[in-house]
Design a binder for these strands. Structure first.
Lengths: 207, 207
DNA sequence: CGTCATATGTTGCTTAAACGACAAACGATG
DNA sequence: CATCGTTTGTCGTTTAAGCAACATATGACG
């Protein structure tokens, strides 16, 4: 029953037994609840399973450990937030890239720095872990977009482009939310600062 | 899988598969949600099952029809509201009788007359059906209390006593909430009006 | 009246979740 | 160091939930 990441995505397309969807939703909600009560390291798999009214063995049937669940949550929520923004056809366009960035910045701003100097420093650990998965999400989305480009626009190494793009988009937003700015820039502003540099590159600045 | 009422109570004591508990909770929540959106007659079994993320066949494995679910909800919630009030040992005492009445009046006041002249008259139907089940609840609780009386206090026909008691308690509260009073009496006042008459009877008033 | 669509129950088979038990890793405590 | 309690993964068996298909109602509309 345990799924690898790739099989997971494949199965997401195919019709899934509704019990699977429901169980994962219960587990997600359970972890979310627990995170508002205590820190991630203090939460056990048993806690999550109990809260979700799910057997502990069932948890392991879906996720390797609690980190895998956290990762799944990050991806799941980010992708649903994005697909809510992109009604039109997805694809490697400037407009979509901007939507992707804006979504990422809204998303990162949404949960980062919720309990900064108040809580103990360890309480921010799971936020960082959680945030890092967003980069993977962005990478995979961009990669898929590039691979779907029409033949005459094909590029040498989609992976390299996707890496650069995803890290710029992600890192820009991560840093903006990590350092506790007095005034936090709106997601759109962040995106519009980042995009020209990303598209034009820094070659012209070199001596 | 379908359970009769009595088997149900029995199984409630024995350990139940958590899936059963969870499924019923999902169905209850689904119906509650739907009732806030449309009237009971307009809700289909399919609607409830969909909202609960449960198969329609599974619904029928638990309840005969939507009325059975409504009844189950009424009983379930009333009994949990009562047991929250009675921390001490249950039993046929004046104090417990008062708690039972107060709980009933709070409960009836809680959902009756929520959409009185605003909604169509048919929208109150399910409220009445729902309310009537409370009488059954009260009856069964009182009956159990009487049957648990110590041997020297045994009574001829527990059923008759339970019927009278339950109908007085219930009817008193039903009428108070049904007729839309300008000022609604608090549950405790209702209970204290009703109790002396119930305990002393009306014999002394007869010519 | 017929018929078309929808809702209701029911059934046999498939699949995911529950359970208990297990070995192993870990951390605290004596 | 040894030991205890807890958490972690895993496995085989049992059981409840999903599903598709079916035979009825029920009800609106031409």
């Amino acid at each position: 029953m345990l799924q690898t990441e790739v099989q997971d995505v494949i199965q997401a397309e195919a019709k899934r037994d509704p019990r699977i969807t429901r169980t994962r939703r219960l587990l997600q909600n359970a972890l979310t609840e627990l995170l508002s009560e205590k820190n991630f390291p203090d939460i056990t798999v048993g806690d999550i399973a109990d809260r979700a009214t799910v057997n502990r063995a069932t948890f392991y049937a879906h996720f390797e450990d609690k980190y895998a669940l956290l990762k799944y949550m990050a991806q799941e929520r980010f992708e649903s937030a994005l697909s809510a923004k992109i009604e039109r056809a997805p694809g490697f366009t400037l407009a979509n890239l901007r939507l992707l960035a804006v979504t990422a910045y809204e998303f990162l701003g949404g949960f980062m720095g919720h309990c900064a100097p108040s809580g103990p420093p360890s309480s921010n650990d799971h936020e960082a872990i959680f945030a890092m998965h967003i980069q993977t999400c962005i990478y995979e989305i961009v990669l898929a977009w590039i691979r779907a480009l029409p033949p005459h626009k094909r590029v040498e190494s989609p992976e390299v482009i996707a890496k650069v793009t995803s890290w710029v988009i992600f890192g820009f937003g991560f840093q903006a939310n990590e350092t506790r700015q007095p005034k936090r820039l709106p997601p759109e502003t962040l995106a519009d600062q980042m995009l020209p540099v990303l598209t034009a590159g820094i070659g012209a600045l070199l001596a």
